[in-house]
Nucleic acid binder design. Structure first.
Length: 432
RNA sequence: UCCUCGAUAGCUCAACGGUAGAGCAUCCGGCUGUUAACCGGAGGGUUGCAGGUUCGAAUCCUGCUCGAGGAGCCA
């Protein structure tokens, strides 16, 4: 043998050498005594050339059956070639079929969404989808690295929970032996307990919302990173958001520029996403909306068109802070100078992608928190432990949740969040 | 849950009241630089389901099923 196994992405360094490629056939083009096989291996794709006069009759015969997605081990010599998109080609002298493929459903042409999602297990093999998965991996890794460097402790919060985190009606119910249980829609309340134990913590996991919601921004199961920090106010929280997000985007720009270009996002454009992000108050946002003819009464939350109109004014993601108390969750801390608004903020992504972060400062006063629970008709016994956090050394604390899929959809200019997760869970779609 | 749109060959679509078609894919043949290759040939259909109108329905009407986009809600 003598050939070393090489990933296609590394072929540039292997020009002139004998290499072994292990991958899947993308296409076979036959033209008399010469055949072109394009192969991919997860790191990239390369064209391999077979000449009838240069290979054994057995290899020539076998190469005729290299149908789309047949898995192969191929050996040959790597050669620079100006005609190749990647600059290199391989002159094959041996090819071994590992697993034959026939009648592959997904062709290199346009397909409908329904068909592609039904074949998600195969769709993931396509160039664009693989690129998205690589970026997702880098992005998540960068977030973890940044949090780790800043002294955050990863603390995984439970997925099976005894009650609603935020008291909404949109939870998936399941059974926990003889009790009812619910799939978590956020790890935040547990994070608050962990922050008092460890100072700075985060959870990174799936969240479940049983909303009968079907838009390009929604998944039933999605992933969130939720940092929570003791002794931190709203301003400290927002700084953490912008630092973490711009670092992670910077890592993606640095490590996946080709994938970004393939997906139609200019890496240079993304590299401009650096702190500080603009900050406007809810009141100022209402002013922008009024100018655009999208007036809403004070106290109401924004809908998707409103978020889009606001974010269109900015090149960077924009924080909207100090929402009306009535529009936000029970645990948000009122602004001491203006109790009708809370010390919360949402981060709206540019280009109409909408909210990608929600967070803020939490109520640290026992009596106020108890009052809010009652105002929201939440069962106090479910929140006894949460109230305890305000009885034993309560501190000002803040945190936020960043939606991985929405952020990726924006970064990668995608039409829909469903392409940013390997197997999307959507209304009416549980398979594969 | 509501509003809008859609369903015809494996895929993407055409036929819009008068015999259901094309491109791609598949199979067979040809071609020594192709790159969504090209050229020739073949197979492939209960037009989502059920009813109705009509001499005649893929086409018009009703109901249902499945899906998509959006709204509300949210990351």
């Amino acid at each position: 043998m003598g050939a070393t196994s090489v990933r296609i992405a590394e072929l540039g360094a292997a020009v002139g050498q004998s290499v072994e490629i292990r991958g899947w056939v993308l296409s076979l083009r036959k033209s008399g005594g010469i055949r072109f096989v394009v192969v991919r291996d997860g790191s990239g794709q390369v064209q391999m050339v077979l000449r009838e006069k240069d290979v054994s009759p057995e290899v020539w015969e076998a190469s005729a059956g290299l149908s789309q997605e047949t898995s192969i081990i191929a050996r040959g010599r790597c050669r620079a070639d100006a005609r190749a998109p990647s600059g290199v080609e391989i002159d094959l002298d041996d090819v071994e079929v590992v697993g034959q493929s026939g009648d592959y459903p997904i062709q290199p042409k346009e397909h409908g969404v329904d068909f592609l999602l039904d074949h998600r297990h195969l769709w993931l093999r396509s160039q664009r989808q693989a690129a998205i998965m690589r970026v997702r991996s880098r992005f998540e890794q960068a977030i973890r690295n940044w949090l780790d460097d800043q002294g955050f402790i990863a603390a995984d919060t439970p997925i099976l929970t005894p009650s609603a985190c935020e008291g909404t009606t949109t939870l998936f119910e399941t059974t926990y032996f003889e009790q009812k249980a619910y799939l978590s829609q956020s790890g935040q309340l547990y994070n608050e307990a962990l922050a008092q134990a460890l100072g700075k913590v985060y959870c990174f996991g799936p969240a479940f919302r049983a909303e009968r919601s079907k838009t390009r921004r929604h998944l039933i199961e999605f992933w969130m990173v939720e940092p929570e920090m003791a002794f931190t106010d709203l301003d400290g929280c927002l700084e953490t958001v912008e630092q973490m997000l711009s670092y992670a985007i910077g890592q993606v720009v640095e490590r996946c520029p080709d994938d970004l270009r393939l997906l139609g996002r200019d890496p240079e454009e993304l590299a401009q996403v650096r702190p500080p992000f603009p900050r406007i108050s809810y009141d100022e946002a209402l002013g922008i909306l009024r100018e655009q003819g999208l007036e809403i009464p004070w106290g109401e939350d924004f809908g998707a068109p409103h978020e889009a109109a606001i974010s269109e004014r900015f090149k960077l993601p924009v924080f909207v802070h100090r929402y009306p108390t009535s529009a936000k969750a029970f645990y948000m801390k009122p602004d001491p100078e203006r109790p009708e608004v809370v010390l919360s903020a949402d981060l709206l992504a540019p280009e109409g992608y909408g909210e990608i972060v929600g967070g803020g400062q939490r109520i640290d006063d026992y009596d106020l928190l108890l009052r809010r629970l009652r105002e929201h008709d939440l069962p106090q016994e479910d929140y006894d432990w949460y109230l305890d956090l305000r009885r034993y050394g309560s501190v000002p604390h803040s945190g936020f949740g960043l939606g991985i899929e929405r952020t990726l959809a924006w970064m990668l200019k995608l039409e829909h969040v469903r392409e940013t997760i390997p197997f999307p869970r959507m209304l009416y779609r549980l398979r594969p």
